[in-house]
Design a protein around this nucleic acid. Structure first.
Lengths: 150, 150
DNA sequence: TATTGTTATACTCTATAACTATA
DNA sequence: TATAGTTATAGAGTATAACAATA
């Protein structure tokens, strides 16, 4: 339980710190940053709405809201899918990519300062390893958007 | 950065899981659980408002809101401080303590399932150690409520 | 019938600024 | 002058349920 409580507190403190940086430097929230970063991580910068929602543990309606905000800001566009006419594909725009590039250096700095300041290399390796395996396993759990209503 | 992203994702997934459990079993949010747990952690179950706000990285007005909710629910009371008449002290009620006791077993179960399922003892120890030191250092940073307005 | 996405809606929460009272 | 706490307010975000369109 000590590990759990510490993990939650560290996560929250870190989120507060990066949230402020992202707001100041890019005018976006952490969730919006996650959406952009998730898209940027794809080879072609495009994903289906539902796939984004699943990765970020969001309801689909919540993602629709955020996608609308990001589209208004010109950071992504939505277009119909070619293979499945029910689907909408979200595509990162050049501005969206620019914003990420512009915001990332300071973002990395904040993370370094807040999280890694006093950690040595082995600590970081161990943390990355442990927490990376955790994430992979947790991702395997049934996705959020697939949950049946009660 | 891999460690950072994984840490954030694990934290968010975990928070979603426990939040649902707390809502279902106790009718409280995670923040409210944190407030109650913070008080229960004190020998006499009492703390000043500002001290609670600092520990939980909250604005004071945000804590006022949550304290009002919890007081309405009968889980804590607020009373004037004896030594400093500016201060308000928050005190856990018996119902508040009962709720924690009632909610905690299932809470521990969720954490065990979601977080520790496939981790062996050394993994847990290492994680607790790393993340515990991190928290201690991050706590040493200047508190949230002390930030001067721009 | 199941899945994808949006909309309408209602609610929770958070922070900023202004204010009161005490140190 | 600084600190403790509250209030008023406004905004951001979230989810549930109902819906339309497609598989």
């Amino acid at each position: 339980m000590a590990a759990y409580f510490a993990l939650m507190e560290v996560g929250n403190l870190l989120q507060h710190a990066v949230e402020q940086q992202l707001r100041d430097d890019g005018g976006i929230s952490y969730v919006q940053f996650q959406i952009l970063a998730t898209l940027a991580d794809e080879p072609d910068g495009r994903l289906r709405m539902t796939d984004v929602a699943d990765r970020l543990v969001h309801s689909r309606s919540g993602l629709t809201y955020q996608a609308t905000q990001l589209q208004k800001a010109g950071l992504l566009i939505r277009e119909p899918s070619a293979d499945d006419e029910r689907s909408t594909v979200v595509v990162l725009t050049p501005s969206g990519r620019d914003l990420l590039v512009r915001v990332l250096p300071a973002h990395v700095d904040v993370v370094r300062q807040v999280l890694f300041e006093d950690m040595d290399r082995t600590d970081v390796t161990v943390l990355a390893d442990t927490v990376g395996r955790l994430r992979d396993r947790m991702r395997a759990a049934p996705p959020r958007s697939a949950r049946r209503p009660r």
